[in-house]
Design a protein around this nucleic acid. Structure first.
Lengths: 99, 99
DNA sequence: AATACATGTAATAAAATTATTACATGAAAA
DNA sequence: TTTTCATGTAATAATTTTATTACATGTATT
């Protein structure tokens, strides 16, 4: 569910697409996407929460802190049956607080 | 994309789950989900726009109009590669008007 | 004729998501 | 030491999505 939500936004799809080719650090990724870092953080957060990407802070040779994000490979077959299982584990109605 | 968006809501997943078992008409479906018809229409619309379900108005033996929705079977492998293709066909930034 | 169900939509309200602006910190290079 | 580029977050604004309320129509049954 969290995965499906994470994949319901064009920027996040694009992020996955970019990270699929090569890992990137935050500022660079923001430039590639032409969006602000705060906004990018929001999207990265959702993707990370969904377990689709993971970030690690590294120190470049010059001693600068650089945070890289990389893709965690996944393959999910989307079909009605799977969705049936998924939806059973959902408490509908006003359970949205915990999103 | 429209499909992924359609699948990003718990009610819509539940709808798919229900229709996977058996087709239903709108009012009945609303009762099963315990939501109002107007709200249900909204969700049905999105699912139909995504091509995941389809509805047809029938006339019951008693002459009453009854609208049945049924599931259109699908199977979509979700993986980074597919998402890469998908995201290429997206114009990011402020193209959201045409949603 | 009133009640019970079915259809459907328009207008509005509420909530969640997305986006922006303004900060603050630290290290390297000019 | 000022500029540049990296980190990160808090507060707020804008937009979209979700939900509700109030209608209107038609047929069958009581």
């Amino acid at each position: 569910m969290q995965v499906l939500e994470a994949l319901s936004n064009p920027y996040r799809l694009k992020i996955i697409s970019i990270l699929y080719q090569e890992r990137q650090y935050v500022s660079q990724l923001a430039r590639l996407l032409e969006i602000s870092r705060p906004l990018l953080y929001l999207h990265l957060q959702k993707l990370e929460d969904a377990g689709l990407i993971c970030g690690k802070l590294e120190l470049s040779e010059e001693g600068k802190a650089v945070k890289y994000y990389e893709l965690i490979p996944f393959s999910i077959p989307l079909n009605p049956e799977k969705i049936g299982e998924l939806s059973e584990s959902l408490t509908l109605k006003k359970q949205k607080k915990n999103r």
